[in-house]
Design a protein around this nucleic acid. Structure first.
Lengths: 256, 256
DNA sequence: CGCACACTTGAACCCCCTCAACCCAAGTGG
DNA sequence: CCACTTGGGTTGAGGGGGTTCAAGTGTGCG
């Protein structure tokens, strides 16, 4: 299910990496996710400021590193892996509000309390910024604040799309939308051009799309029977008819 | 349905107010919505900068002033009335993603295209900021940018709540959540302490909650029969049992 | 080999939707 | 003044998409 068969079981589930003082200025400079993240707005000269504020941490699959309702004293910048963000109702009903990939910035709540929980799906690495330190970074680097505003705006647009999906789309349309979005997001899937990696479980997909596991599974097989996709195994999908999938996702053909 | 019986029919539906040059520095200073809006972050000395960038406009009920997919060359700050924000699917299915009240800031899309449409529900007044002018304001007043980031963060939290509602709550829970949220938002309802004004139609409520008109209506009468609310007429609701409504909204009791 | 766990498939049910009628208040015009 | 229309809201009957409950099928791993 994940690509890190060895390193997983050893690690304490939330383990800050030890960065020696002498090297602390470097890890941002060599960070592969920098280009995708808000950190790109800080130029090379000031990278050490950024690096010294960040606490790099690894999280094992299935471990929760943000809990809804707890004091929000940190911000998180995912640099590797995929995490799910979710909210719960008292009886256990769950809504996944999004998936966080390398470059995602989490914790943008003005409130002093996290509005959602976050759990690692595969091996996740993040940079954690204590609230105060990020605040001073924001004061010193207006470009960072500008970038954060852009990020928040983009997420707002995505959230509106998701509301449309949850409120008005059929199960087929939801799954098609999900696959199209996954395809856009996670291009870095070698293999075929049309292969989509699905690191999350069926339960996660269901809770993201406002459906049940069973409906997700049935809808997968239906799209498979209709030759829109192929499902070599549970962790990936091949897109066979991109056009049809796209117009389905956009709500053009609900029946048929 | 609205409180402005006279002024309505005369007005051209989108009519910029004529502000004489000599007075242009004033309308922000006397704006009742300033405290609630992002404009509060600009101090009195600089209000004229703000005022000269804003184009005040009135919109009649039912008129669309932002259209999804069109070039996003302006930002909007609602100063009076209520507007609905929505997205459409090609076959007409509609999802209302939110209601904008006095103080709401719209158009926060990085993209050059609006992600949603906006339509006035009652008589709406807004300040329109051309993209370029807002940009220069942001450059000159970091506090404004900070305030915008706060606003966006709060909306993101609200959007996540709405996703939970749309994906996982029952019709009763949705309506209860909606009523509770409306109560919080629009306190300024004289009359009773427990009266909630509902300027939007049943169709709007339905499209906001991911339901149909009929289900909204039936759910209203059910909550009424259960003595949780009273519905004197279609445009307002009295909360009779706030506790029960609240715990319903939070998902504690789905049946019964 | 056998357990565990995720996924798939089947059958019955139910909440909400669809379709349709009805109510009611506000015009509108003869 | 009343007949007619219009539009929003309510109520009823029936149907369907997705859920629930339950069993079956893999697949990895000890």
């Amino acid at each position: 299910m994940t690509n890190f068969p060895a390193a997983r079981s050893l690690a304490a589930h939330v383990r800050p990496l030890i960065i020696e003082p002498g090297h602390s200025a470097n890890h941002c400079a060599t960070c592969g996710a920098r280009g995708e993240s808000v950190c790109a707005s800080i130029d090379d000269r000031n990278l050490d400021r950024l690096a010294s504020a960040a606490i790099v941490t690894d999280v094992a699959p299935g471990k929760t590193f943000i809990s809804e309702g707890e004091p929000a004293d940190s911000f998180f910048n995912i640099t590797a892996g995929t995490a799910k963000l979710y909210k719960l109702l008292p009886d256990g009903r769950r809504q996944i509000t999004g998936f966080a990939h390398a470059g995602s910035f989490l914790g943008l709540a003005v409130s002093s309390i996290y509005a959602f929980s976050a759990e690692a799906i595969d091996n996740v690495r993040y940079c954690r910024f204590p609230r105060r330190k990020l605040q001073s970074l924001l004061d010193d680097f207006p470009a960072l604040e500008k970038r954060l505003l852009e990020t928040a705006s983009n997420e707002l647009v995505a959230a509106q799309d998701q509301m449309l999906l949850l409120g008005r789309k059929t199960a087929r349309e939801r799954l098609a939308s999900f696959l199209i979005a996954q395809k856009r997001h996670a291009l870095p899937c070698r293999h075929s051009e049309n292969r989509i990696a699905l690191p999350m479980s069926r339960a996660d997909i269901a809770d993201y799309l406002g459906l049940t596991i069973e409906t997700v599974s049935r809808t997968f097989t239906r799209l498979k029977n209709e030759q829109l996709i192929a499902v070599p195994n549970a962790t990936c999908v091949d897109v066979l008819d991109r056009e049809a999938l796209l117009s389905l996702a956009e709500g053009y053909e609900s029946g048929d």
